[in-house]
Each structure stands twice: as C-alpha cells, then as structure tokens.
Design a protein around this nucleic acid. Structure first.
Length: 595
RNA sequence: GGCCCAGUAGUUCAGUUGGUUAGAACGCCAGCCUGUCACGCUGGAGGUCGACGGUUCGAGCCCGUUCUGGGUCGCCA
C-alpha cells in the first residue's frame, strides 16, 4: 500500500477526451473492473464523474505491470501517465476514445470483495444495500441522484436569494407541541424530567421571524416526525421552508411559480407554462376523489347519488338514505381489458380503503354483464349508465358507502390503479396543480372534535371568517398545496396575524385560553406586538428530488435513509446507551422496555 | 396496530406431486491468454434453503410461530 505522498490529481476520470491526447495527466479513483489479457492489462478506474481506462502493456515498467496485475475491484488507485488514443474505441463510454498509458501507479487502498457488485441499476435487496450504504452510494445512479439533490438545493438558495429571502436557521431543540404528528423527544440533562422536541417543521419560528421584520425567510430545514414510514415518508426529512410578509395567497403562489419554473427548466430542461392550474379542494374531491389529484389522465369520478337514491338496490339506496355517497368511474374501452380475475383484484383493492365492495358493469359490444344490473329496473340501469357517460365497450366501477370519505378514498385510489394497469400514465409528463380553499377543519373521529386540517395558525378565507365559530364545516382556509403528478410536493397558508382572530381560532378548536397560552403562549404574546400579514409554504425536498430523478422512493435520494421500522441498518440505530448516560439524564429503563 | 408480498451459494434467481449428492448465471480463487472494454478459455472453492417448532418413513417444498426487508391502510396539525 502506498501513500499519496505529493501525488496531485490533474483530472477526473470522466473528463479526458481526444483534445488532451499527449498530455500527462494524473487521476485517482476506484477500480471498476480489471481485464488481464496476460501481456496486456486494462483497469477501468471510476470516480464520481465516470470511468477512464488505464492501459498496461509492453511499454509499461515491469514493476508497475506486476502491480497492475494484482489490482482488484474497488482498490483505490492513483495513476499518472500519458493520455493516448485507443486503437479500438468504446462508443459506450464518454472517455471511450482515449486511455491512460500508465507511468506511475499507486495502490492507495486495497478492498475486500464487496458484498455486491458496484454497478448501475443493480437489483440487490434493500437490506444489503442499506447495510453497506457507503458502497451502494458508489453506484452511478446513486451518485447522480445525490448530485441532482445538490443541484436542486443550490438553485433553491440562488432563487430565493435572488428574490430577497434571507436564509435563517431555527433551533433543532424546541418545545413539544402535541397537536399534529408525534414528536421525537430529547431529554434534558440540566432539567431532569423535562424534554426538548425535535422540530416537525420550523412553523412557529418562521412566523416569529416575520414578526421580527425579516420580511422574507427561507431555510433548507431538517424536520422530524415520529410516525410510520412509507415509500415517500421518512422520520427525518428535509423541507424547503419559506415565509413572506405583507402578502396574500396570490403573492405566495406567484413567487413559488417562479421557483418551480426555474427548477423544471434548470433540472429537466422543461418549460412549465405559468400560471399553474388551480383547483379548489371541493372540486378536486368531487372530480378526482383526492386532494392531490394526478392530472396526467382522466377517469374522473361521477356522482350517481340522485340517480340511485330511490332504486331498489339496497347497496346503493341505503348509503344515500344515511348521508352517504354513490359514485363511479367510467373506463373508456375498459370492458374487454378487465377479465373477471382482474375485476376481483380491483374489488380487493378498494376494500383496503374501507369500501365494502365494488359494483361493476361491463358494456361489452355483444352483451352487458354487471354485478348489479339484476337489482335495478331497465330504466334505472339506463339512467345510471347515462349519468356515468358510459358507452359500448366501457367499464363502469361503482363504490357506494354511508361515508363519503370512504367513497372518495376508494375511487380516488382506484382511478390511479386503473390508470397504472392500463398504462395510461406518461412518465415524461409533469402536471402541476395548486389545490386551494382547503377546509379549515376536519372532524377527528378519534378525538371527537373538529381539528385544524392544516394547523391552528392558518387564516380563514376573508369571506368565511364569520363561519369560524358558527359553521366550522363550511369554513375554508387560505391554504394551498402544490401537487405534482398526484404527489403533494408542498403546502402552505396565509397565517393568522391578529390576536383576536387567533383567539377565535383557538376557541373554534376547543382550546381554553389557558390551554392556548400553555401550548402557544410565545406566539400569542408575540402577536400582541404587531405582526405583519404573512404566509408561506414548505416543500418536501426529498419528494421533489425523487420525482425529478424518476425514483419511486425517497430513500433513493437520501444518502443515509432509515428503513420501515425507523432504524438505520448501517449504524444499527436506535441502540441502547450506557447506563451512565441514562443516570445523568435522570432516566431509567426497565429490562422489559430495553428489550 | 391491521392487511399483502418476499427471504435458497458472495449477488440475482430456478428448484416439478414432499423422494438420490439442492442447480444456473454473475462474482470469487488458480492457471492460460498482446487490444480488451460485461474480454475469452480451462479448472476449483463456495449452502444451517432466514430462525424455531410440528406433520411425515422422508420437508427447500405442507402447517404453526417468529425474525428481517418491502408495499400499504390506520397514522402523518
């Protein structure tokens, strides 16, 4: 093994081309592959930019040649030599016309045989990848994803700086606010029995920064939520967080449309036409059964309620009698694309969203087959199909439930599932959408009260302010989400900036003045001293980068992600700690809870 | 907390109705090879079939439990 000892790299592996022929260059990197032909050895050297072929032949010094023959995959090398044109070129490699005739070779580190091959698009199971994440990250697709993430962060800083935003850091050790997601707690040594919480978002701090007069703030902010993971949810994730003063909804949207336009132009070379489409929450639910509709395909929902409310089929009529909903999607030409077995699996699919079943009608050209036609009169069936807009060859899929929420959730998911199965989604299509006018409140079955849909500092729409305490269900918020291809990229709102309105909001949520003071006193007190009208938005950086890089999991754009049970396989955390550490914190762990 | 999927060589996988010594490709090791580039050729090593228990004359295969990972519902102001 040799040291660098004054060796200076002149070039990255992926860059040398024909213009540099005859130059002496020096490169460093990892051995991708060796090809030993006896009297001739080729070594592919890899760094973050690409691969350069090192050549060893009868011109090569004997000692260097012998050294080259014992090189193995993932050894770390430094090589100096003269760049020369290859006698036979490799058109698949950017550097495929050149090679390095090596005159100096240093083996800087040897490597054990890696547990999996370091190659693009490897299909190795996730456990192993994550246990050896540092090797997984050597793969070119991971290198590209992480580089793309850097590029997005860089242009984010540039854009918001260009638009007058200050980047300001907010604390990681904060006060727990039990509304919302579960907090990660950090015990205090100095205050035994007391805890910090890691931030779920910088929400309250950024509002206070507006009150302090910074006018425009942003932060690439790490956030923590102790909830179960998904493909697009990690317990620790990054937000692009921003807040602006003296603005209303349109102002926040305008500055973010500029940002999104720049992201898509700089990263993907795509021109996003502005303004981005907007859709009120109620319309999104009605047409797509979702507050984050994927607009890359149709299959919109259709309300059958008034057509079936008096029909003889109890499955349809009873939900209508108890305030429920009966809706359908019509799949054009779907009659012959879904054999019985596929329909059965769609039935199972909607059941995972709480639907009790899925009624269907196939309008095949020869004959209609349906799971419910026999329960309806011919007139009722004709009216239903007319409402559904179904024509010969189509497939109609109906969900009926006493809970409108279940109908929306089932059909909203079903239309995406059907689109996937029929391959209706263009992977190169990017459909952005602002969903606006969210309800202020949603009813929590668990807590048996109305809770804030967004958070308790969200301002109601001006025309709905009077409904805050009189008709919560109808009260809409100055809240907006930005949706990309059916994924929530970010969301935000205009905030409440006057104490009167904030108190009214707390009353609406059922907090006593004491509760509110206990939980949010710092914010309430601050707002007595003149808060500017303000609002903002936060993007999920991981999701944004995931979608821009075409990945299907945010794990693939996070260097060191956690797995589904929130542990990290490489370092094996969380882990037990020494009892001394616990003693200092005044904490005790019973044997049962430790194991 | 619920549901679904997966676990066989270092890796990716195959493995028939439960039946002889569990296979392939890649990787690894050794030898040969002067223009390869997924080099080639020859030979070799490598397995607690995730774990435990059960059924059986006999289990990679059937049953139960459990572990690990993935997806998802709940959850995620």
């Amino acid at each position: 093994m040799q040291s660098l000892n004054g060796f200076k790299r002149t070039d990255y592996c992926g860059t040398p081309t024909l213009e540099k022929i005859g130059n002496e260059i020096a490169v460093c990197g990892w051995v991708q592959r060796c090809r030993d032909l006896g009297q001739l050895v080729f070594v592919d050297l890899r760094d973050r930019t690409g691969i350069l072929q090192l050549a060893f032949d009868d011109h090569t010094d004997k000692a260097i040649f012998d050294q080259a023959r014992r090189v193995r995959a993932e050894f770390v090398l430094a090589a100096r030599g003269v760049l020369r044109e290859r006698s036979s070129k490799n058109p698949d490699l950017p550097t495929g016309s050149v090679e390095l005739e090596v005159t100096e070779l240093r083996i800087l580190a040897e490597s054990e045989t890696p547990p999996f091959e370091i190659e693009e698009n490897s299909d190795v199971n996730d456990t192993l990848r994550l246990k050896y994440r540092y090797l997984d990250l050597r793969r070119p697709d991971m290198q590209r994803a992480i580089a793309l993430r850097h590029k997005v962060v860089k242009l984010t800083r540039d854009y918001f700086d260009d638009n007058g935003f200050y980047e300001i850091e907010t604390p990681m050790l904060t006060k727990s606010t039990p509304e919302g997601a579960r907090d990660y707690l950090v015990p205090s040594r100095v205050h035994p029995g007391k805890f910090y919480a890691l931030p779920q978002s910088p929400q309250q701090y950024k509002q206070l920064l507006m009150l302090s007069g910074f006018d425009r703030y942003f932060q690439i902010a790490r956030c923590f939520r102790d909830e179960d993971l998904r493909a697009d949810r990690q317990p620790e994730f990054t937000q692009i967080d921003l807040e602006l003063s003296f603005v209303d909804v349109d102002d926040v949207i305008a500055v973010n449309e500029g940002y999104l336009q720049r992201v898509f132009k700089d990263i993907l070379g795509i021109d996003i036409p502005l303004p981005i489409q907007r859709m009120p929450f109620a319309e999104a639910m009605d047409r797509f059964g979702s507050d984050k509709p994927d607009l890359r395909f149709g299959l919109e929902l259709c309300d059958l309620g008034d057509v079936v409310k008096d029909c003889g089929f109890k499955v349809f009529a009873e939900p209508m009698a108890s305030g429920g909903s009966v809706r359908c999607i019509t799949v054009p030409g779907g009659a012959d694309k879904f054999p019985r077995k596929q329909i059965d699996s769609l039935v199972e699919y909607v059941k995972t969203y709480g639907a009790k079943g899925l009624a269907w009608a196939k309008l095949s050209p020869d004959a209609m087959s349906s799971s419910f036609a026999k329960f309806l009169t011919d007139d009722e069936m004709a009216a239903l199909l007319a409402r559904a807009g179904a024509e010969t060859g189509d497939l109609v899929l109906v969900v009926a439930d006493a809970s409108e929420k279940v109908v929306f959730a089932s059909l909203g998911a079903l239309r995406c599932e059907v689109a996937r199965r029929l391959d209706l989604i263009d992977k190169n299509d990017y459909k952005l959408l602002w969903v606006t006018e969210f309800p202020m409140f949603e009813y929590s079955e668990e807590e048996e009260r109305y809770v804030a849909m967004h958070h308790p500092f969200t301002a109601p729409m001006d025309e709905d302010a009077a409904l805050l305490e009189t008709d919560k269900k109808r009260c809409r918020a100055k809240a907006y989400d930005i949706i990309l291809n059916g994924t929530e990229l970010g969301g935000g709102s205009i905030r409440i900036s006057t104490p009167d309105l904030q108190e009214s909001m707390f009353r609406a949520l059922g907090f006593s003045a004491e509760d509110a003071q206990e939980r949010f006193g710092h914010l309430i007190n601050a707002f007595k001293y003149g808060a500017p009208p303000h609002g903002g938005l936060a993007y999920g950086l991981d999701r944004l980068v995931m979608l821009l890089s075409g990945q299907s999991s945010i794990r693939d754009v996070i260097a060191f992600p956690k797995v589904q049970n929130a542990s990290e396989l490489m370092t094996s955390c969380p882990d037990v700690v020494e009892s001394k550490q616990l003693d200092e914190l005044g904490l005790k762990i019973t044997e049962q809870s430790a194991q």
